[in-house]
Design a binder for these strands. Structure first.
Length: 373
DNA sequence: CACCCGTGGGT
DNA sequence: TACCCAAGGGT
């Protein structure tokens, strides 16, 4: 668009086609400033899908090594669909939000069943796959098929909240924000536009200290013009996280094996393995707690010995302190009373099982003890 | 709609 | 230390 054309589109110094100008400004910025990310440059929906799921609530830097390992292990939808869920969880181990891995596995099987292994390109079909909501569907369809489907992730919420100087927390204005994202989306270049929005949020319009000086939308941004860019978006009222103290047992038999259990398939850390234990009740000692929990969960009697380690860990909606003790199996046959499965394993075999982060710290402490001897 | 669901990094 | 936040979705 030449200078003459631009001037014909303006009135009293204000561009009539302000939205078109805004789109072009962002795309021009992106052409120079875009991040070089492993899942960009291809339009194969499978790797784009994997990246979108891994990037949910997870930073790019964290995702990249997992992304490469995943595609090496499961290079196609078919290899993912036919893989064992425990193997899928093992590759996902450490990324968190494990329902994402379980849903990827399930969705891959649905794509084989319902679409002959071809990733669908209809919005309603994509939204019907487990683990894919509006934002992820928009990310996949715009990046893989250049379809004009908007997105509203954390980056876009923050950008839009500042753009219109939103006076309420974004969660209270999701409908309005979706409408904004849709109305801004470039109908000619939706894939590039959505990527550009996310890069703008990740590199310029950051949560703290936004770099407004280099922002292509500076003149469009109401928060900037009001001098309150860094004060927005408004935050939700937060309640302090509850804190639980947990007694944990590393139960040894007389063959140098440890008893581990697999958590129920759904819910917190579903399908992952752990060391058994439970919450310390008021006025209960750690040893009494561990003995009681092991009796309730596994139906056996144990002796509680030395402390292995104490682990502090923060989950998304509570935090825990795990007080871990060596224990010795005294009597009874272990039963899976409150879990899906139990096993005796050696310290060498234990890497074959997916464990949550707090438990891998325990394994590390056990390894250090054996190395010292 | 409120709550559940992990982990790492920044301040 | 404690809190915030990150390419959200399911129930």
């Amino acid at each position: 668009m030449g200078r003459n054309q631009k001037s014909a589109d303006s009135f009293a110094g204000l561009p009539i086609s302000s939205v078109e100008n805004q789109r072009e400004t962002l795309l021009t910025w992106y052409a120079n400033a875009c991040r070089d990310l492993p899942w960009r440059g291809s339009t194969d929906p499978y790797p784009i899908w994997i990246s979108e799921i891994m990037l949910q609530q997870t930073q790019v830097k964290t995702v990249i090594p997992y992304y490469h390992r995943w595609l090496a292990e499961f290079p196609t939808i078919e290899t993912l669909a036919t893989a064992d869920l425990q193997q899928v969880l093992l590759v996902w181990q450490g990324l968190g939000y494990y329902s994402r891995a379980r849903n990827l596995h399930k969705a891959a099987q649905q794509i084989i069943q319902d679409y002959g292994g071809i990733f669908p390109d209809q919005l309603s079909d994509v939204l019907a796959l487990p683990g894919i909501g509006r934002t992820t569907a928009g990310g996949i369809l715009s990046a893989a098929f250049n379809q004009p489907v908007p997105i509203l992730d954390g980056n876009v919420k923050r950008i839009l909240a500042r753009l219109v100087a939103l006076s309420v927390p974004p969660a209270k204005a999701t409908k309005k924000l979706w409408q904004l994202s849709e109305s801004l989306l470039d109908p000619e270049h939706p894939g590039t536009f959505n990527q550009a929005l996310m890069d703008l949020g990740a590199t310029i319009c950051t949560p703290k200290n936004p770099d407004c000086c280099h922002c292509p939308w500076q003149s469009h941004c109401q928060a900037y013009n009001l001098g309150i860019a860094s004060k927005l978006p408004m935050r939700e009222a937060s309640t302090p996280l509850p804190h639980k103290i947990i007694g944990v047992a590393v139960i040894w038999n007389n063959q140098e094996q440890i008893l581990i259990d697999r958590r129920p398939a759904q819910g917190l850390l579903g399908g992952l393995w752990e060391f058994p234990g439970g919450k310390i009740e008021p006025d209960e000692t750690v040893a009494d707690c561990i003995k009681r929990e092991i009796r309730e969960e596994l139906g056996i009697e144990i002796e509680v010995g030395d402390r292995v380690i104490t682990v502090d860990h923060a989950y998304s909606h509570f935090r825990v302190t795990l007080i871990v003790h060596h224990c010795r199996h005294l009597s009874g046959v272990p039963q899976a009373l409150e879990c899906d499965e139990i096993r005796w394993v050696t310290l060498e075999e234990i890497d074959q099982f997916p464990f949550p982060k707090a438990n891998t710290q325990i394994i590390g402490a056990l390894r250090q003890e054996t190395e010292r001897m």
